[in-house]
Amino acid sequence: MNNHIDYIELAAKDLPATQAFFEQVFNWQFESYGPDYIAFSNAGLNGGFFTAQGSSKQANGGALVVLYSDDLELAQSKVEQAGGEIVRAIFTFPGGRRFHFVEPSGNELAVWSQ
């Protein structure tokens, strides 16, 4: 039996802003499935965003989606330039470094590097 995480879905208050952000910062590709859902690819793991007023934040018990970048400082700069909010600046942890940000729909994600 093959069991693994295959797909992730996140809430988004503003699908167009969220799509533009991830296209600009991380070069994700999107496909629209009507007015309330967009699927993303080219992200290491496929997934989608659905229209909802809620958002996911680690402090509220939400799962933290952690992305990888081989240039952490450049990734943080691109997040800031695209309108993302840095909620935890680059810090060191056992095994690497990372930062946390909030994208336009209010979801908190992180980016790590070695």
Rank of each mutant, 00 (worst) to 15 (best):
R98E: 09
T92F: 03
A75S: 14
G83H: 03
N107H: 07
Y68F: 11
Q24P: 07
P94E: 13
E103Q: 06
D6Y: 03
A82T: 05
V87M: 06
D70Y: 06
V102N: 07
G44A: 05
I8Q: 09
A82L: 05
V111D: 07
S77T: 14
G106P: 09
Y68P: 01
Q29W: 04
S105F: 03
D70C: 03
F93E: 11
G47V: 06
A89D: 15
T92V: 09
E108V: 01
F50I: 05
N60L: 02
G84K: 00
A12S: 15
N107D: 03
F93S: 01
Q76R: 14
I86V: 08
I90E: 02
P94I: 00
Q19T: 15
P94K: 03
N46C: 04
E103F: 01
F50V: 10
A75K: 06
N3G: 03
L64Y: 13
A11R: 10
V87Q: 04
F40M: 08
N2S: 14
Y33R: 15
S41A: 11
G83E: 02
Q81D: 13
G84L: 00
G44L: 04
S56D: 02
R88G: 05
V25Y: 06
I38P: 08
R97P: 04
K78A: 10
V65G: 02
I38D: 14
P94F: 02
F26H: 13
G96V: 02
Y7S: 10
K57C: 02
V66D: 12
L74I: 08
K57P: 00
W112F: 13
F91V: 04
F91K: 06
L64E: 07
S77G: 11
V87N: 05
G44S: 04
G34L: 06
F99P: 02
A52K: 14
S32Q: 15
G106H: 07
D6I: 01
W112L: 03
D6C: 03
Q58A: 08
Q29S: 11
I8P: 08
P16F: 12
F50E: 09
Y33M: 12
Q58L: 08
G83S: 07
E31L: 05
P16N: 10
E31H: 13
